[in-house]
């Protein structure tokens, strides 16, 4: 095996096998908050069956789960809990943001909702929709499976070790808040 990042034949086959096994046995932690939870129940239900992807069983403990599916709006009161749950999960872990409220705050651009959970935790697959049709969710799961398959040996490095131009830690009260959008008039009916 050469250390230039590429393995030899056997190690890559082994890696491919391990990733195949991982992608077809996803233990999900459905972090359900809001209306998308109803569509999640549909996806897990008999019509749009999640069981055929091997992802049927929800594990309600983060220690036992692989995939954190954040379903629905996360607001600032819930954000520390989401962060705690994410940190309690063991590697390898993936995050799916289900619904547009989890992806970007949805149409709740106000003081309560976090404008996208990727401000708090890193996300692998974003599934937009309000709520997304179950077919979209299944497409998202398949994309996650494709991502898992090609992920290879260097998983996802822990984010603290990857310098990113956007990884600027911002704490409330430390400097001027960037989350305040001061529009010239408070009436912003153009953004529905």
């Amino acid at each position: 095996m050469n250390y230039a990042g590429q393995g030899g034949f056997l190690t890559t086959r082994l890696q491919a096998f391990v990733q195949w096994a991982r992608k077809f046995s996803l233990f999900q932690y459905p972090f359900v908050t809001a209306c998308c939870g109803m569509e999640y129940m549909s996806v897990a239900g008999p019509f749009y069956d999640l069981d055929r992807f091997g992802a049927a069983l929800p594990r309600f403990s983060p220690r036992q789960a692989d995939v954190l599916i954040v379903v629905g709006t996360v607001n600032h009161k819930m954000a520390p809990i989401l962060r705690k749950v994410y940190e309690q999960m063991a590697e390898p872990k993936w995050v799916i943001s289900f619904g547009v409220c989890a992806t970007s705050g949805g149409f709740y651009h106000n003081y309560a909702a976090v404008q996208g959970i990727d401000l708090i935790i890193p996300v692998d697959v974003y599934i937009p929709g309000c709520p997304p049709r179950p077919e979209m969710v299944l497409d998202g799961i398949m994309k996650l499976q494709a991502k898992i398959q090609q992920q290879g040996r260097d998983m996802r490095l822990l984010e603290e070790t990857v310098p990113s131009p956007y990884a600027r830690t911002w704490m409330p009260g430390v400097e001027e808040p960037v989350a305040v959008t001061d529009s010239p008039s408070d009436r912003d009916v153009s953004e529905a």
Partner: peptide
């Protein structure tokens, strides 16, 4: 109280974009 004035509790890992 402005509609969009958020008071986050968890440090953001990336800068929020509008």
């Amino acid at each position: 109280y402005p509609l969009r004035q958020e008071q986050p509790r968890v440090p953001y890992r990336i800068a929020p974009r509008d």
